Simulated assay, not measured.
Amino acid sequence: MRILVTGAAGFIGRMVVGALAARDTLVLNGQERCISAILACDMAEAPLADLAASHRRVHALPGALSDPAILARITEDSPELVIHLAAVVSGQAEADFDLGMAVNLQSTIDLINACRGMARPPVFVFSSSVAVFSCAANDTISEDTLPAPRSSYGTQKLMGELLVRDATRKGFILGRSLRFPTISVRPGAPNKAASSFASGIIREPLAGQEAPLPVGRDLRLHLASPAKALEYTLAACGLDQNALGETTTITLPGITVTVGEMLETLRRVAGDRVADRVRPAPDATIAAIVNSWPGEIITPRARALGFTPDAAFTNLVQDHMTAMGLSQS
């Protein structure tokens, strides 16, 4: 089978492409299939070229999903699996409404329309977010809570979920939308996501740098590790469509931890010198966004479908340190 990954040059995208390229088969819609080719699409050309050079079955498709030529190539290739990760992150979508709408919503519409021209409906995995939810005072909710986003990013992701559901109903795709927890600890540089601090307050101190803390220590976060995000993505590809029924959106499990507990874990694992590099830097804009996100989400349906969270936040810190070649105190 042929696979399309959009946003392939991003952090999760590179992980997904690399994991797919390293295996010969993947369970798709309940059946094990052989992987013949992976089409990696992104606007960043250099990372795509590196992926293609590193993996013989990976083919670079540089360009925007707004480009008719790119969409025509996708329809012509007719992938049996589409993993749609391309997105503008939360803080950037809030600051630039037009950009967020173009990338987070219009590209999803365009990609679904490209799928409509294929001979068979592909399995379509859409990357959504728990930012579709809002609640008072960082409360606990369940996966059945009605979404009510308080950010442009969350609103755009919710509209994408609804499009995936309706396109599945119409028989254009076999859709499944994944509401990812906040991912921590992400490697690399900080990005413009409102939740970027959830990785920064661990990653930067471990790298010998100071890290600003824009929120209070009592804020709770619903988290998953990068490895768990990859696991969730590949598991979603394998789900039999009949197991989803009409509810094509899955709110993924996460671990619940306060910012204070995250910092205490860093201190315990890496020592005082590292933990003391985190400094308070209140940011009202970021706080307003993340304080409206649920601190805990109860997810029995996702667990019944086979999705399980990380064991503990300590593991997330230790995994990042191992990946970076760092020793524990």
Score class of each variant (00 low, 15 high):
G260Y: 09
D218V: 06
A60Q: 05
T258L: 09
S127E: 14
A49K: 10
Q209L: 14
A21K: 12
H222S: 05
L234S: 10
A136C: 06
R2V: 01
T322N: 11
M101T: 02
A302V: 03
R217A: 12
A137P: 03
A284K: 13
P214A: 00
H59L: 08
D110F: 06
L51S: 11
P282E: 01
S90G: 13
V5E: 10
I83C: 09
A64V: 01
E76T: 14
L65Q: 01
R57L: 05
Y153D: 00
R203E: 05
A207K: 11
H59D: 03
P181C: 05
A207Q: 15
D110I: 03
V103F: 06
R150D: 06
L162P: 08
S107T: 11
A19M: 05
L65T: 00
K157D: 07
M159V: 08
M101W: 08
A304Q: 13
R267A: 13
L71C: 04
S151Y: 03
I297M: 07
A64R: 14
T155L: 15
A93R: 04
D42F: 03
A275D: 01
T155S: 13
D50I: 09
W293P: 03
G208I: 09
T140P: 05
T248I: 08
L316S: 12
D319P: 11
A189K: 12
G63Y: 10
L162C: 14
E76P: 01
G30C: 05
M118Q: 12
I38A: 00
G238Y: 02
L326M: 15
E45M: 10
A288N: 05
K228S: 12
P205G: 13
L223M: 14
E143Q: 09
V317F: 06
A311Q: 11
L244K: 04
P62G: 06
V88K: 05
R73P: 06
V89Y: 08
A194Q: 02
L163V: 01
M262A: 04
D144G: 02
R277P: 10
L61P: 04
F313S: 04
E210L: 11
Y232R: 11
L178Y: 01
R268M: 07
F11R: 09
A189E: 13
M1C: 04
A281H: 08
A194H: 15
M159W: 06
A302R: 02
L71G: 08
P47G: 12
F313M: 07
Y153M: 12
P300F: 09
D240N: 14
D310E: 14
G200C: 15
S90L: 10
F97P: 01
R277L: 15
R203P: 03
M43V: 14
G254Q: 09
N29E: 13
E161H: 08
E76M: 10
M321R: 10
R203T: 04
I286H: 11
A72Q: 15
L28D: 01
T247Y: 02
D77Y: 02
